[in-house]
Every structure is written in C-alpha cells, then in structure tokens.
Amino acid sequence: MLLSLRDVSKSFASGTQALKGLTLDVGAGEFLSLVGPSGCGKSTALRLIAGLIAPDGGAVNFAGDKPETGFVFQEPTLMPWANALTNARLALDLEGVARGEAEARAAEALARAGLKGFEQAFPRELSGGMKMRVSIARAIAAKPKLLLMDEPFAALDEPARQALNDDLLTLWREDGMTIVFVTHSVYESAYLSTRVAVFSARPGRVVEEIALKPPAQRDERYRLTPEFAAAAGRISAALKAKP
C-alpha cells in the first residue's frame, strides 16, 4: 500500500461538493485508472493526493513519508520561454540539483520520453504529442515514486495517443512507479491499467473497482484480443450502471 483516501469529502467555496465519501487505496507499483462522468471530481481527487488542496473531511494517508510525486496535466503546461531541456529540468532545478547533473538527467528523461535531439526546441516548435512528451519527461526526470496524470492524452489524435500509451507503459515498468491516471476513455483505461476505479456522478466516490490482469508486454495485438474486449466491457458496464 502506498496511500489511502478514507471517506474523503471536498467542497469548493462556490458551494459545489465535488467529492463525498471517497475511499480508495493505491497500492505500490500499480497502474490505477480513475474513470467517471465529467465533473465527478477526478481531478479534485488527484489534487488531493498531490497535496495541492486539503480535504474538508476524511483523510489522505501515506504509508511512510509522502513519496516524490510527479504531475502531468491535460495540457502540456510547459514554460513557453524555456526550451525542452530546461522544462524537463524544472523539478531538479527547484530541488537545487547541480546544473550539470540536472541537465544530464533531464536529457536522459527526454530521450526516454522519445525526444532525443529536441533538447533545444521551444514548446512553440513542437507538436501537441511532442509537448506532452516534454511534460512526461519533466515528470519522470525527478524519478517520482508516484505519478499523477490528469487526462494527459485527451487532446491527442489516436495514433499519437497509442504511441504515448505504449511509451508510458515502458516507463512505468522500468521505473517501478505507481501511476494514478485519469481518463475518459474506456479503451485507454482497459489497455493501461492493472486496476480501474469507477466514480459515481458528483459528488464523486468510488462505486466499483475492477482489477485487470493485462499481459506484462502489451502491443497493438493486445487491443484485438478477447481479454481486452472483456476488460473494456466490464469498465463500460460499470460506468453505465448508475447506482
């Protein structure tokens, strides 16, 4: 167990209650997807885990110290005035890592995210998919234990999204991170996850948890298997069953 949310509720000053009675455990090393109707509080749940906002009720507990955490937003959210390398260096710079080492680690992260040779490129010069790769490189450069991703590939076209799905799985396997991944796509969650938590409509809570057993090595062919179809079917059914 890496962290657990216990009976968490969260309302905003506007009066909107985003979450109520949210209970969810996140195990070390798992790839957990959060799916649910729009506005049900998935982003809010991620921000609670990141510690960017505090719950009104309930608790967010970590087993041990709060782990080194990375965050990837739906938008690439890069600093437009900085090149890819400087963007990828952000966490290391803020932590005071020496410049040379920070550059080396950021360059490695960019290469692993599939952007070797684009270190000096400015965000403006990169495509949407490449910008998202910089954003991922920035997150993995600091070697996080926990990576929170909020619909990171929603704005991409299908081929770019699938390529990034596969590269993300490789990074996840190699680094042994825990990933909490918000998505609207049933198929994306079926392809990536070891577990899927299905949220109710607002105020959000987890209404169903679906454990999946995808093969360790996945590629195009997995999308055509009955196992994949069955996984997608279960998630889809849970989403439609409005309790």
């Binding site: 990141a50 955490t69 965050f71 938008e75 803020l94 932590e95």
Partner: peptide, 24 residues
C-alpha cells in the same frame, strides 16, 4: 495556474515562483 501548482508540488519557494515563473 497549473504551473504554479507544479512549482508548489516540487516545493518551490515564493522567490522561486516569482523569479522562475511569474516574472517571465
């Protein structure tokens, strides 16, 4: 605002947020 959140997540000081994010 997401960048500000990211800076905070990485433990940035107000000075770092000012110099590295707000001023640019």
């Amino acid at each position: 605002h997401n960048l500000i959140d990211l800076f905070k997540l990485y433990g940035a000081s107000r000075w770092q947020i000012l110099v590295r994010l707000q001023l640019p």
